[in-house]
């Protein structure tokens, strides 16, 4: 089955010639790559370079105009993300995948408690024991370094960094294999960022997660990713090992990006 979808054997996610236009303007063009199990792929570039559009195409949130995205499911073989029924795609999205939004308010239910936020995925797949759900939620709250006595508090009362950590817990509770992250530390204070980066780094490693991370911050990319794709004007202009792309950039645009980092 994987052959007819044009994916590479063993790859978790395979994008082929993914192209998306908005009102005639190209948002991303001809993007192809394979993501391997345990790999964290960073997509970097300036705003407007098409990173987020690409991420949304990969995660099945928007349909590309051309190209395909193949995903190797845990049990039912490789599927074409954009040819799946909406039911299957949404099921994948809440079981095998996670999606961490830049704005935690978009990824959380602000009106219900932290515990309910974390427990939702469990309940969505049939968990019906309140005590167990609550226990799991408390465990995850601790894993993202939020005090246990905040379990029944609503995220509206949380700081930005706590909300982001709660969003991470809400996504990881179902044991996803692949997590999409859109600027997960964007808009946060530097000290708060550091804590989240550290947390993500540890979780990705311990849980052997695969991830696609969109960021404009090359420091974040260096810390969290194994591989980088550099996008400019909707196209991938360079890709490779993260440290190689950052230390020995080949393309003019990448060299400009790397040279633009302010030294500390």
């Amino acid at each position: 089955m994987s052959g007819e979808l044009g994916s590479s054997d063993g790859a978790l996610l395979s994008a082929r010639n993914v192209t998306k236009r908005f009102a005639g303007r190209v948002a991303c063009r001809d993007v192809s790559f394979d993501l391997w199990p345990g790999e964290v792929l960073g997509i970097v570039g300036e705003s407007g370079s098409g990173k987020t559009t690409l991420l949304n195409c990969l995660a099945g949130r928007i349909t590309p105009d051309a190209g395909s995205v193949a995903y190797a499911t845990a049990s039912t073989g490789t599927v074409d993300v954009h040819r799946l029924s909406e039911a299957r795609r949404r099921l994948l999205a809440r079981t095998e995948w996670g999606f961490v939004n830049q704005d935690a308010r978009e990824g959380l239910r602000m009106g219900v408690s932290a515990g309910a936020n974390i427990g939702e995925r469990l309940m969505a797949v049939g968990a019906r024991h309140y005590g167990d759900i609550r226990g799991t939620a408390a465990d995850w709250l601790a894993r993202v370094e939020i005090d246990g006595d905040r379990l029944d508090d609503r995220p509206a009362t949380f700081s930005g960094g706590m909300r982001q950590r709660l969003q991470i817990a809400r996504n990881l509770v179902s044991g996803p294999r692949l997590v999409f992250m859109d600027e997960p530390t964007g808009g946060l204070d530097v000290s708060v960022q550091a804590r989240i980066l550290d947390l993500l780094r540890g979780l990705v490693e311990r849980l052997h997660l695969s991830a696609v991370l969109v960021t404009h911050d090359l420091g974040v990319a260096r810390l969290l990713t194994h591989r980088l794709m550099v996008m400019q004007g909707g196209a991938v202009v360079e890709e490779g090992l993260t440290d190689q792309v950052l230390d020995d950039p080949q393309h003019a645009y990448t060299q400009m990006l790397v040279a633009s980092i302010l030294p500390v």
């Binding site: 219900v112 408690s113 309910a116 939702e120 309940m123 969505a124 019906r128 759900i133 609550r134």
Partner: peptide, 22 residues
């Protein structure tokens, strides 16, 4: 409508969870 169509009822259970929590 989509939630009904796909039997995605986690959110209903969330509201009951929240009720017990409160």
């Amino acid at each position: 409508r989509t939630l009904h169509a796909l039997s995605e009822y986690g959110v209903m259970q969330v509201s009951l969870y929240e009720s017990i929590a409160r």
